[in-house]
Every structure is written in C-alpha cells, then in structure tokens.
Write a protein that binds this DNA or RNA. Structure first.
Lengths: 202, 202
DNA sequence: CCTATCGCTGATCGATTGATCAGTCAACGC
DNA sequence: GCGTTGACTGATCAATCGATCAGCGATAGG
C-alpha cells in the first residue's frame, strides 16, 4: 500500500517552511532563491527542507499547488452562476481582483511560475489560473451580455487583460504605470468601467 | 580622459556574445543562465565574456540597454504626431505590436527584467518601455478622441493592457489563453476592436 | 627577424549551490 | 527503566557557479 506522502508528522515546522518558501520564492524566483535562505526565513535548519519535502524542486511544487488550490476554492465560492450575466461578471472580476490583492506573495510567485517554473508546469498551471476568468467572460458573452460587435472570445480576453493589468500596476511593480494619478484608481470604479465598456448597449 | 568602454575592439565575437546572451537570458533568466552556456551558444570560450564585458551582470545590462535603445528608436520613427488622434493611436498600437512580435527573444527578456532584473533597473527600464504607449494614449484622450465617460488615464492603461495581453497570448506562452479559437485573432482586427472600444462616439 | 600587442583559450581559483550523513534529543510504548 | 521512533541539526559532500590567470597564436610596426 503506497503512501503518497512519506510520513507527514503534521508539525508546524512544515507550515513554517512552506510559508517562508513562498516569501523567498516570490522575491527571488526559483533559481534565485537558496535553500539556506528559505531555511533561515523559516527559522529551521537547511537539511530539514529535504527531510520534509525531498528537495528544492518538490518544495517549489508544493507552494505552487497550494496557491492553485486556494485560488480554485476561492473562485468556486465566489462565482455565482445563478446571478444575471451582468452582476455575475462584475462579481467574478471583483473576486479575482480581491483574491490576488490579498495575496501579493502568491501573485508574484505566479508571475515567476510563468517564466521560471519547472518545465512541466509552465503551461498547465499558469493556464489553469486565468482560465476561470476567461471562461466566465465567455459565458457572459454567449448569454448576450457582451456587446455583439466584438468577435467571440475577444471580450473574454479583454476582461482578463484589464483585470490582470490592474493587478500588475498595483501589486507587482509600484508605479510601473503610474499615470493614473497619485492614489490610483479604486478597484470598484475600475471594474465598473471595464464591465460597462464591454457590455451590450441596453 | 576617461573612456567609458575599456577597449572596444569592434570584433564580431562581441556581437555573437550579445546575440547568444539574449537567447539564453530570454530562455532561462538571469540566475538561470550560466556564463558557460552563453559562451557555448556564441561559439566562444567562457573567459571571453568577462574579457569583453567585465562580468555576467554587465553583459545582462548591455543586452537590456540594446533592447531599450532599439525600442525607443523604432517607436520614435513609427509614431507620427501629425496624424489625427484616431489614426495615430491605431498606428502606434500597431507599431508596438509589430516591434515585439518581430523580436520574441527581446520580448521575453523584457518579461524577465520585470522580475529577475538587477535591483537598480527593475523599475526604470520596464517602466520606460511601456511609457510611450501609455503617454500616447493619454495624449489621444486629452485631444478628445477617447470616450469621455472614462476617468483620465484609464483608457491609456486599457490600451496598453490590451496590446500587452495580445503579445502575451501570442508570444510568451503558447496557448496560454487559447480561447479565441484555433488560429487566434489577426492583429489588425484586434487592434481595430480595441480602438473602437475606447473611441469617443462619433 | 624580432618583439610588442591583442584577441582568445585551457586550466584553475574560491565561493556557493543542493543534497547527504552521522548523530542528538525529546516523546512514546512496553 | 529501556528501547525505539522520528523530528531535527552540525558537518560535510560533490558539483557548479562566476571570475581569474598564465600563456597561446596571429598580426602589425620597426
């Protein structure tokens, strides 16, 4: 009877390592982060990483999978398919924005994963994260909520692009495109404008 | 009389190194790329990198500065301030898209630079690259070309975001958001839709 | 023909990497 | 009390990193 995880002692050191690994990986990327650095941030010794996770690669994978799982659970709860298309899109975009704004480290880790990720996960994981947004926009367009002078799929991409860009400008690099003014745009306002732009004329 | 560059022999080996460095850096990032790997790709020995550029960091900087210079020159030529705002925005977005589509390695290197770049260039360089687009959109909005129900600056961000996302989906990760169909959207069509979306009602 | 110069390379440096090993210590069953 | 188990650490491993050094070979000036 094979057991997927070796022993899993349920110690809090494990969680501390994952937490520290998220912080260091988010700041430095996979190749830039060192196992000693992660261990120090977690307050443990370096061999403990290998003892619990089996290696640096495996630790990276655990961090990434936890982010993916959290995101999927959050979006599943937030998305209400019973809402009318208009409110549904707005709620979904809001949830997407709120999730990542509350987890800047996870957001940056995900940016790394698009470039620096291990070979076999570069596409699948990153793709999986944005797919709910795009799929939901697609659904709204199919329901006739999106203006009909846009080719199928473009509105979905636009919605994802705009929200993603809001995140980029607010989380990743401070003032990367600080042309919107000093304090930037409130999320609610920005999402409202995005939805109105893509909405079919009433 | 100080000379900025040590000797600068104007050999073609130098260009070969820069070219190989762009390819390897684009694929692996700064920390992921090795000087021996770059040297092998350029067909030279590894100490030659240090001889010509003084180190890995300096080589990274040279590659980045060349991309920035090429981009600035290209956009300066492509942007015609005499055009009416509508044609001007379209032409500018087209030029931006064409530049990066013709240089996928430079595009990916620039993605790296946002995360993996050396500390002092992380903001400035990346900011410098998108600023022309945003600034030009801003100008078009000031001229009354952009619909007036958008807060100042948001249209500029939207234009930049949408074009950037077109690039992402086409260059960086194949089929990252392949929801637009099999062959994707033609650039001219996509840009036309974006401009029409943001344009003031006639 | 000699030599100084310059582009360039093989060999090697110390430092740091991720991973491993032997061994300590506390907790627990008997 | 005793032995076993397992989380955990200091010390150390081979491998690789970027950088350096001495020297090769071709070329140009005298």
């Amino acid at each position: 009877m094979p057991e997927l995880r070796p022993t899993f002692p349920q110690g809090d050191a494990r969680n501390a390592i994952v937490e520290a690994a998220l912080a260091v990986f988010a700041a430095e990327g996979f190749h830039g982060a060192g196992t000693r650095q992660i261990a120090q941030a977690a307050g443990v010794s370096q061999p403990l990483l290998n003892h619990h996770f089996g290696g640096k690669e495996a630790l990276w994978r655990v961090v990434g999978e936890q982010i993916t799982a959290d995101f999927m659970a959050f979006m599943t709860d937030a998305v209400d398919l019973a809402l009318p298309p208009g409110d549904g899109v707005t709620a979904m975009l809001r949830a997407y924005l709120a999730f990542w704004k509350a987890r800047p480290l996870s957001f940056r880790f995900n940016l790394w994963r698009r470039l620096d990720g291990l070979q076999d996960e570069r596409v699948s994981r990153s793709e999986q994260m944005t797919r709910p947004v795009v799929a939901f926009m697609q659904r709204a367009q199919d329901a006739g909520f999106i203006r009909n002078d846009l080719p199928p799929g473009l509105a979905a991409i636009m919605g994802g692009a705009l929200v993603q860009f809001l995140l980029d400008s607010q989380l990743e690099i401070r003032a990367a495109l600080a042309v919107t003014g000093d304090e930037g745009l409130a999320d609610e306002d920005a999402i409202g404008h995005i939805v109105r732009l893509l909405r079919a004329p009433s």
